[in-house]
Design a protein around this nucleic acid. Structure first.
Lengths: 239, 239
DNA sequence: CCCCTTTATAGTCAGTACGACTATTAAGGG
DNA sequence: CCCTTAATAGTCGTACTGACTATAAAGGGG
């Protein structure tokens, strides 16, 4: 029961931490900031900050996202609560409970070093560690969550600009999952899943570089994919 | 960035709230406590309480679970973080951030009214609302999460005793999803999914009531189901 | 004691999804 | 003007799925 009267309660500091992911040059990148002070001075960490008295954690996360990326409009970006980290010793200075979020960006702007960020950079996911505090774990949890959600939601489109080719969409899956996918089969499945993507009607063709121009698509309205787009099973072909 | 120095920080109270779900007589039930004081005096609420200074949220949740259910050993029970609720006005008295958990129980013991719970009861899920605070939302989120996880994890066995029949397992799915399932097909899929369940070797038969006795199974070790056991699609057969 | 109901388990069958391929089209580059 | 690159189209056999039918093994009521 809610025993407000029975237990004394200790005040906690509540922060948000952001795992901001994007794709640059076909590789998964994460937005990191360099810490200026102890503890972990000089180490890289996930961006974050304190939740203000009048904010929800979601509001604080979106504010931090805007501050750290330098983007004026972050309202359309995908921002999702990951989980809360509350180990008593996770911050050596004081008792800090952190609500972690995952954010997905389509086209990565150079993080303006302005604002309050001492130094903010896009770092390839593979070379990000070790991070300060328990951020290694948060980042790993974020990656795992995103990979899982690609299977049964249309989340992949959050990595893409508003209009994209199926090849770009496939690259999202391949990069996050770390697995090459068969192009014709990927195409078939995506187009067979209602509400995942919809073709851009006009004479829509992207002339990026070499090769046949690809048709452009927009994100469909569907939140859940039916059927899901399962990643190649680690099991399934055992002995 | 972690601007501990830049912003003043407000102390928050941090609580855990528990959505404890079980199956009784083929219906989904949730453990509720009756509030004795304002606000929401006389209303039912999810059990919960303050996180103590030396506890993580997970530790606090398991402690509360033990206290509220009266079970001496809650170490084997499924307990999982749901998400954190932090709207500034969710508690009219003060700023409270609550980390919500979902717990799944196999056989429901009568909640001992002892401990500190004024009154604790198993309430059918459908008649649980309205609850105090934002607990309606928490409960709905818990239900949705559990329903989704039944698809791609072996979570359903957490609702069952250590040995169970496939009929009982099917009842878990039907009750949580609110959909009848075809028995032969359910059986085929469960047995075809490696690691989901394993037969109890001995002369294992349950003579519960009428009908042919069923073979007994135990939970297999698999965390993820491959292939997943998808619920009958709301879409898929549209117009 | 014999049906009749109940529940478990076995099996069938057609439609579909999927993985692995091959083929064709439409660009750009030397 | 080929050659490479990338997009798109199509094929084929297997696995899976949903909808069913059939059989087996219990208990209960006349």
């Amino acid at each position: 029961m809610r025993a407000y009267d029975k237990y004394a309660y200790e005040p906690f500091a509540v922060t948000v931490d952001l795992a901001v992911l994007t794709l640059r040059a076909g590789a998964l990148h994460v937005l990191l900031v360099e810490r200026g002070q102890e503890p972990y001075a000089g180490r890289w960490a996930l961006p974050g900050g304190f939740v203000q008295p009048d904010e929800s954690a979601e509001t604080a996360a979106r504010r931090e996202l805007s501050e750290e990326t330098g983007l004026s409009d972050v309202s359309g970006l995908h921002l999702e609560q990951l989980r809360t980290y509350s180990e008593p010793d996770r911050d050596p200075r004081m008792r800090v409970v952190s609500v972690a979020f995952t954010a997905l960006l389509p086209d990565p702007p150079e993080p303006h070093g302005g604002g309050d960020a001492a130094q903010a950079r896009w770092v390839p996911y593979d070379t990000a560690r070790p991070l300060a505090f328990d951020h290694d774990r948060i980042l790993a949890d974020a990656h795992e969550r995103v990979g899982a959600k690609l299977e049964y939601t249309g989340l992949a489109t959050a990595f893409c600009p508003s209009e994209f080719t199926l090849g770009e969409l496939q690259q999202v899956y391949e990069t996050v999952w770390g697995t090459p996918l068969d192009r014709p089969n990927f195409r078939r499945k995506v187009l067979a899943t209602p509400g995942f993507v919809e073709p851009v009607p006009g004479a829509a063709r992207l002339t990026g570089g070499r090769g046949k121009p690809a048709a452009l698509y927009r994100a469909g309205g569907a939140a859940a994919l039916h059927p899901p787009l399962l990643r190649p099973s680690r099991e399934g072909r055992p002995a």
